[in-house]
């Protein structure tokens, strides 16, 4: 019998013998040990940004709602950004281990269909061309590989890496950084954005802007990982 390796720890998968294994065409990608380290971002959460352990609405979203011209972007994540997830994302993005996107691709599509049924198009958050060359791939596009995704946005200006800046910097950095590739009328349409990680939401907000301005009805977002706020909510 062929042995399969866990995508993360590279240990052989131990599968209990059973008929399911005989008929299952594809073995699981992760061993149970690694699978258990993923923490689903489920349960009670902010109705807008999806932050776990919040009743109705988190303070950030309340502030944002007052400040912004457009309605908030409703967002959902697959998993919380715990230390394991942190390693996984950095392996995926910075080391360039594209294969790891398979862990999330299917589940992300399921999440989107469940949470945002009837979205019209899915748009991965683009990278700046320089960053794209360095990395060899766009992590958001890979995460959206199971979607009927369209690359509709371009990123303008080489912002410093979001992960290296914080808070207000992040907003300033990302603001106005996205444009539509081709001007189009998005009125009455529901757009779904795809990204790898949601930290403060500023990237998502900035990427949503061109769509709001083109008359979009709704903009939602799904990501693989959700960073948790340190401060009490």
């Amino acid at each position: 019998m062929k042995t399969y390796l866990c995508l993360v720890c590279h240990e052989p998968l131990k599968q209990p013998p059973g008929w399911l294994n005989v008929f299952q065409s594809r073995p699981p990608l992760l061993c149970t040990g690694c699978r258990d380290l993923l923490e689903p971002a489920a349960g009670e959460r902010c109705s807008i940004c999806g932050h776990p352990d919040v009743i109705k609405r988190c303070s950030d979203c309340a502030v944002r709602e007052k400040r912004n011209r457009f309605p908030p972007v409703v967002h959902r994540s697959l998993y919380t950004y715990n230390p394991f997830m942190k390693d996984l994302i950095s392996q995926f993005k910075y080391r360039g281990d594209a294969e790891l996107s398979l862990i999330f691709a299917d589940d992300l599509f399921k999440l989107a269909r469940r949470e945002f049924p009837g979205f019209h198009t899915a748009v991965p958050i683009p990278l700046h061309p320089t960053r794209l060359w360095e990395r060899g791939f766009n992590q958001a596009s890979l995460l959206g590989q199971k979607f009927p995704a369209e690359e509709l946005l371009i990123r303008d200006g080489l912002s410093t890496k979001q992960s290296k800046s914080s808070g207000k910097d992040r907003r300033d950095n990302a603001e106005g950084a996205f444009m539509l590739k081709h001007p189009a009328d998005w009125s009455e349409k529901h757009i779904l954005l795809i990204d790898d990680i949601y930290t403060t939401g500023s990237t998502i907000e900035a990427a949503a802007l061109p769509f709001w301005e083109a008359g979009a009805l709704r903009v939602s977002a799904v990501t693989a990982a959700r960073a948790l706020k340190k401060a009490p909510l």
């Binding site: 390796l5 392996q91 080391r95 360039g96 281990d97 594209a98 294969e99 794209l132 060359w133 990395r135 060899g136 791939f137 766009n138 890979l142």
Partner: peptide, 30 residues
């Protein structure tokens, strides 16, 4: 084989591109 990952549309060469997952920690050999 099992350690060669795949990017279907590499942003450097624009083609299907393989990379080595086994020695990835030392830089990406693609």
């Amino acid at each position: 084989k099992p350690f060669l990952g795949e990017v279907s549309n590499c942003s450097r060469c624009g083609k299907k591109c393989l990379y080595c997952r086994a020695c990835l920690m030392m830089g990406r050999a693609a």
